[in-house]
Computed example of a mutant assay.
Amino acid sequence: MATTERAMPKGLKPATELGPILVFFAAYYFGDLFVATGAIMITTLIALAVSYYYTRSLPMMPLVTAVVVMVFGGLTLYLNDETFIKMKPTIIYAIFSIILFAGLILGKSFVKVLFDNFWDLDDDGWKKLTIRLAAFFLLMAVANEIIWRSFSTELWVNIKVFGFTAATFLFFVAQVPMITRHMNQDKPDTDA
């Protein structure tokens, strides 16, 4: 029997993407970093399962994130050392940056693969977006390292949840003019 993709209810996709980080934040404030670590591990697996239930595939970025969450979260809990969960964003951002830069060296735009359903850009637009996103991820990795090593756990949690989320949103908003300039103008033929 062939498996088919199911229609995901409206609002569920953002919930699977933002839910784990919001649960992490709430668990930190009602418990501690170790409770939050366990909570994000569980909700990340639930989000992946829900996504798979509807799409019958596991998207690469959430899958890589889940693997890193499980490994570094597991080390945090097993060794009772919060260092590992604090390093998790650095590792994730660095992996994404390296993958994007490697793709450019190989002449491929992995950003195009991820966002082709959203935008129809020319090759130069995909290249620019890939370079910018790779540089952004690298900057976020460096920022995470500076913040968790220099400031309190509470400040790091707040910046991780709100600051990094806001930075990502602002990054994509800032890309709108470039994306607009590089949109392919060809309109598909539509038969009524």
Rank of each mutant, 00 (worst) to 15 (best):
F34M: 09
A36Q: 03
M41G: 01
I42A: 07
T44C: 14
I46W: 02
L48C: 11
Y52W: 13
Y53E: 07
T55I: 08
S57P: 08
L58C: 11
P59S: 09
M61V: 15
M61S: 12
L63Y: 10
L63H: 06
V64L: 15
T65G: 10
A66R: 05
V67M: 06
V67L: 09
V67F: 05
F72Y: 13
F72D: 07
Y78N: 07
Y78W: 13
D81P: 00
I85T: 03
P89I: 07
T90N: 02
I92D: 02
Y93Q: 05
Y93P: 00
A94P: 00
S97M: 05
L104C: 02
I105G: 02
K108H: 10
F110D: 08
V111K: 06
V111T: 13
L114A: 15
L114K: 05
F115T: 12
F115P: 02
D116E: 15
D116W: 07
D120S: 06
D120T: 13
D122A: 06
D123L: 08
G125D: 04
G125R: 01
W126F: 06
L129P: 00
R132L: 12
L133M: 15
A134L: 04
A134P: 00
F137A: 09
F137P: 01
V142D: 00
V142L: 03
V142R: 01
E145Q: 06
E145C: 06
E145S: 05
R149C: 08
R149P: 01
S150V: 09
S152C: 09
T153Q: 10
W156V: 11
W156L: 05
V157Q: 06
K160M: 14
V161E: 13
F162G: 11
G163N: 12
F164A: 06
F164M: 11
F164I: 07
L170M: 12
F171G: 05
P177L: 14
M178W: 04
M178T: 10
M178N: 06
